[in-house]
Amino acid sequence: MKLATFRSPLTANHTRVGRVDDDHSATLIGDFADVGELLRQPRWRELAEQASELTVEFQQHTLAPPIPRPGKIICVGLNYAAHIEEMGHDRPDVPTLFIKYPEALIGPFDDAQVPPIAQASADYEGELAVIVAKRTRNATPDQAADSIAGFSVINDFTARELQYRTKQWHQGKSLEHTSGFGPWLVTPDDMPDQARLRTVVNGEQRQDAPLSDLVFTPADLVSFCSQLYTLNPGDVIATGTPAGVGHGLGTYLSHNDVVEISVDGIGRIRNRVVFGA
């Protein structure tokens, strides 16, 4: 099952959540504003599966981030074995975490607005996003698997010069209006066993890796984060990026570049890079 958040003009100047029936139509689910609000309902899956009252047509530009303002966006660094080698680091014993703020998110087909401070070293990081289904605290990995509502695609957009100015990465990782997120949430039962993540820049493939290359699995990450703080419905964990980032290749993004990130079983996001004042 796919769950998406739609914006105006489809929904008269406010967002609504719907079950995606095909590439161009969806069934709206109650009066919930977004996927996060739906997930806060104990019977969210039943409500989504049984919705049948209003079917609407949609276009790419009407898709908002599935969770427009997550309570938490927890990002994981150095979590693909090949990327760890590419960046010259040792394989970690525990996940490397940093935080991204909701203001960084844009829709799956929106332009990424890059400010001057980040334009010299703008970079992409295609990632699988995990979306939390329920309140979770101190979960084992087995328990954590039941706390996953589904998966999406996210670009952990990064300004490398800012990232490496200090030992804390956050300042290069949470620029407003830069991180494409979507196109929707896909429940775990609809994910293929051997899914791959791919990133293409201006038609050139840069990243291509199996999700099985993750050092820490989605359940591992939910479990680990839940030892630190309570996870709530709609919280997002960006699981890390594979090899092939611009920094590792020695090339950065330029004005009007187009970054497309896809994950098998989910779909793709496509964001144009716009350098602004």
Rank of each mutant, 00 (worst) to 15 (best):
T217R: 12
R268Q: 15
T199L: 11
D123P: 01
G265N: 07
A104Y: 00
E204T: 15
D23M: 08
L47T: 10
Q113W: 06
R135L: 08
G180Q: 03
I131E: 02
Y229F: 14
P183N: 08
G248C: 05
I131H: 01
T251L: 13
A144W: 00
A118W: 02
H255T: 14
P92H: 09
C225T: 15
N138D: 10
V153Y: 02
T158G: 01
G276L: 11
T166C: 13
R270K: 13
V76A: 09
D193C: 12
W184D: 04
T11C: 13
R16Y: 01
Q168T: 11
Y124N: 00
R268M: 14
V258Y: 02
A33M: 12
V273T: 04
P192W: 08
P116R: 12
A120T: 13
R19C: 07
P95Q: 06
G77F: 03
A112L: 03
P218V: 07
R272T: 15
E46Y: 12
H24Y: 11
S121A: 14
G107Q: 03
T239A: 12
L211V: 12
P102K: 08
Y80W: 11
R206L: 14
L231F: 05
L63Q: 04
Q205H: 11
A277C: 13
F157C: 01
H170P: 01
L249I: 10
V56F: 00
T5V: 11
D235R: 10
P233G: 06
A26G: 02
G18N: 04
T15K: 07
A51R: 03
D22L: 06
V215W: 02
N13K: 15
P210Q: 06
P242M: 00
K134T: 09
A133N: 04
V259R: 02
E260I: 07
S223I: 09
G71V: 08
P92R: 08
P183M: 05
R135T: 13
P188F: 08
R91L: 10
E125S: 05
S254K: 13
Q59L: 11
P115A: 07
E37Y: 01
G248T: 05
A64L: 06
I73Y: 02
I154W: 04
A12N: 15
S152A: 15
F58M: 05
Y164V: 14
P95A: 08
V263M: 05
S226V: 10
E85W: 05
L28Y: 00
E103F: 11
G36E: 00
S262C: 09
R160A: 07
E103A: 13
G182D: 07
K134C: 07
K167R: 13
S262V: 06
D110M: 06
E125V: 04
D156R: 01
A81K: 15
A133D: 04
D190R: 15
I131L: 10
G276K: 08
L28I: 13
G126C: 08
F216H: 10
L228W: 10
